[in-house]
Design a protein around this nucleic acid. Sequence first.
DNA 1: TAAGGTACTGACATGAAAGTTAGTGCCGAT
DNA 2: ATCGGCACTAACTTTCATGTCAGTACCTTA
Lengths: 130, 130
Amino acid sequence: MKVSADTRTGHAAPLPVALADGVFPAGCPSRTVLDHITSKWGVLILLALSEGEQRWSDLRRRAEGISEKMLAQTLKTLERDGLVTRTAQPVIPPRVDYRLTERGYELSALLVPLVAWAFENADDIVNGQR
Amino acid sequence: MKVSADTRTGHAAPLPVALADGVFPAGCPSRTVLDHITSKWGVLILLALSEGEQRWSDLRRRAEGISEKMLAQTLKTLERDGLVTRTAQPVIPPRVDYRLTERGYELSALLVPLVAWAFENADDIVNGQR
DNA sequence: TAAGGTACTGACATGAAAGTTAGTGCCGAT
DNA sequence: ATCGGCACTAACTTTCATGTCAGTACCTTA
């Protein structure tokens, strides 16, 4: 069954993804990846790092409201996913830097416009306007 | 304090958003909006609708694994946010169509490349590769 | 006559995500 | 001498998003 294009707006909206019948499969690995990067704090951390290497305490301050537990957990997930690298310097006091990998940078380039859109439209949306 | 650009990749990564000190404020409305659109099923529904108007049963089939409760709940949230419109036709059996608003279409245009990226990179990521 | 499709709603249950609190070891500043 | 900053970890608790199950009302097909 072929799904027709949007007839109201006249816009084409191609999904450049091989999807049988336009179905998003339940067990698909992309679901897991999507869950990681669209997690409450994942987006914010990736966005903050898109401006360059940052320390633990920088990230904590920039993602306002994050707990240390969630910061550690989010960074670990992003590291396991190969989106972020951790560099610890054996100095006192400890200094640890986080930066995006090439892959992480690729992703952040897609997230930036999304978050920018959310910023611009947030007020209209929560006020229930058009 | 000014945050330096990424010195490793040499890429510029501008955040086109007015952020005092690069801090994402805790009470910011964009947090709410981001939560809605990055919810487990929100992304999938918006993506499915990016291909055009669709019925309840179409969406249920395409977002594989979604329950009827979550479909209803997700659609209601997206409707309240002015991203989706609902059109019920008084026929028997009932027929209800869902489509993106202009604003919803704008958003989906940003989500499509993100999901495409997730599809392409998912296997590498979950296999813990580089 | 019974089963199944259509588009839902509501009560209840669960589990994963998130929050809270406390503790680590070392240092510099008050 | 004790406080705070640094970068965490671990145990425990809570909250909320999500899942499960049942029911609605009408019609068609078997």
